[in-house]
Simulated scan of single mutants.
Amino acid sequence: MTVDPDQTSGLRFICPTCTFVHVVTEKIVEEVPLVKKKVDDVLGGDEAMAQAATTNLAQCPRCGHNEAYHFEMQTRSADEPATHFYKCVKCKLNWRE
């Protein structure tokens, strides 16, 4: 492969598999809008938390409120402790322990 001496400096795209090299000669700016991917709530959403029991033993990390919806689920192997899920009654923050 021969390299043009005028194109030896600057940025290059180099293929890690083959010997292809592309010298970047100009800056291309293209704005691409980012779209947040829609994700299903595997815990059941707001309806599941509305049916959950409330507890006064958990303090919200965001607003400090002492009442939260609470349920626990086995998310790991059976010999590991269950994961506790909380949702603040006041600010609706979700967290787990």
Rank of each mutant, 00 (worst) to 15 (best):
V3K: 13
D4A: 12
D4Q: 11
P5A: 13
D6T: 13
Q7W: 15
T8Q: 13
S9K: 08
G10W: 05
G10Q: 02
L11C: 11
L11Q: 09
R12E: 11
R12N: 11
I14C: 11
I14H: 07
P16S: 11
P16F: 05
T17H: 15
T17E: 15
T17K: 15
C18I: 00
F20Y: 09
V21M: 06
H22L: 01
H22G: 05
V23C: 04
V23E: 02
V23N: 05
V24G: 01
T25R: 10
E26H: 15
E26Y: 09
K27C: 06
K27Q: 11
V29E: 13
V29I: 15
E30P: 02
E31Q: 09
E31P: 04
V32W: 10
P33L: 10
P33G: 07
P33T: 14
L34G: 13
L34D: 14
V35Y: 06
V35M: 08
V35L: 11
K36F: 10
K36T: 13
K37I: 13
K37C: 06
K37D: 02
K38T: 08
K38A: 12
D40T: 15
D40W: 10
D40I: 10
V42G: 05
G44Y: 00
G44T: 02
G44W: 02
G45T: 07
G45H: 03
G45S: 06
E47Y: 09
E47F: 09
E47Q: 13
E47M: 09
M49L: 07
Q51V: 02
Q51D: 06
T54C: 11
T55E: 05
L57P: 02
L57E: 15
A58V: 00
Q59A: 08
Q59V: 12
C60D: 06
P61N: 10
P61A: 04
P61T: 07
R62G: 07
C63N: 09
C63D: 14
G64A: 04
N66T: 15
N66P: 06
Y69M: 04
F71L: 12
E72C: 08
M73K: 04
Q74A: 14
T75F: 00
T75A: 03
R76G: 10
R76P: 00
R76W: 08
D79G: 00
E80V: 13
P81K: 05
P81S: 05
P81T: 06
P81H: 04
A82R: 11
A82W: 01
T83C: 01
H84V: 04
F85T: 04
F85H: 02
Y86N: 08
K87H: 00
V89S: 05
K90A: 12
K90M: 12
C91V: 00
C91S: 09
K92F: 03
L93F: 08
L93N: 00
L93Q: 01
N94R: 13
N94D: 06
W95R: 08
W95E: 04
R96Y: 10
